[in-house]
Amino acid sequence: MAIDPVAEPAAAAFLALLRANPNLTVFDGPAPLDQRPPYLVVYFAGGPRLGDGLRRQPDKATMRAYVHAAGETTAAARILGGHVDAAVLGERLTVPGWDCGPVDCELANPPVPDKSTGVLVMDAVSTWVWWMTAA
């Protein structure tokens, strides 16, 4: 399976912003089943769109990061969400070969109970979006 030359570096840049805060535990995808909160789980979607030129090279991309802030309480999940806001809101990611627009919060949901791992956590999901154009 080939590595996406746009989505993977964009995901890595977003994760690096979160991981720059030493107080955050950040997972790219699911957390281990025995992980106790607080932690962040991040999923990504998006990537390049084909341009209108004759060569049909990708010249635009839209990326989304779905950040799950898992805390033991609703307050803990909200506090984690605040750390996410501080880390990524308005930042322009560095992705080789691409100019990135500022990261913006597209949607933020309130914390809800999640027992899917066998441990009750309060999960607050926020969706972050940014657009990129080929440099």
Rank of each mutant, 00 (worst) to 15 (best):
V88E: 10
W98P: 01
P111I: 00
T117H: 02
V112S: 06
P110N: 09
A86L: 12
V121D: 01
P96D: 11
A108L: 11
V103I: 13
V119T: 15
V95T: 03
P113Y: 01
C100S: 13
G118W: 09
G90E: 02
G97A: 05
M122A: 05
C105T: 06
D99F: 12
L93Y: 00
V95A: 02
E106F: 12
R92F: 06
N109F: 09
V103G: 01
L93G: 00
A108E: 12
G118F: 08
V121N: 03
P113S: 07
D85I: 06
T117R: 10
E91L: 03
L89E: 14
G101H: 04
V125P: 00
V119A: 11
E106D: 15
L107K: 11
D85C: 04
E106K: 04
V95Q: 01
C100H: 08
V125K: 06
P113R: 13
W98T: 02
G97K: 06
A108K: 05
R92Y: 05
L93R: 05
P96L: 04
M122S: 07
C100M: 12
D114C: 03
A124H: 04
D123Q: 06
L107C: 03
S116C: 03
L89H: 13
K115N: 12
V95L: 11
T94N: 13
P113K: 06
G90P: 08
E106H: 07
T94W: 10
D114G: 01
R92C: 13
G97H: 07
D85Y: 13
P96K: 04
L107I: 08
D123G: 01
P102K: 07
D104Y: 08
V121C: 02
D104P: 00
C100R: 07
R92I: 04
S116L: 12
G118K: 04
G90L: 04
L89P: 03
N109Q: 15
V121M: 00
V119D: 09
D123V: 08
A124V: 01
D114R: 06
V88P: 04
L89V: 13
R92S: 13
E106W: 10
D104V: 15
G101T: 01
D104T: 15
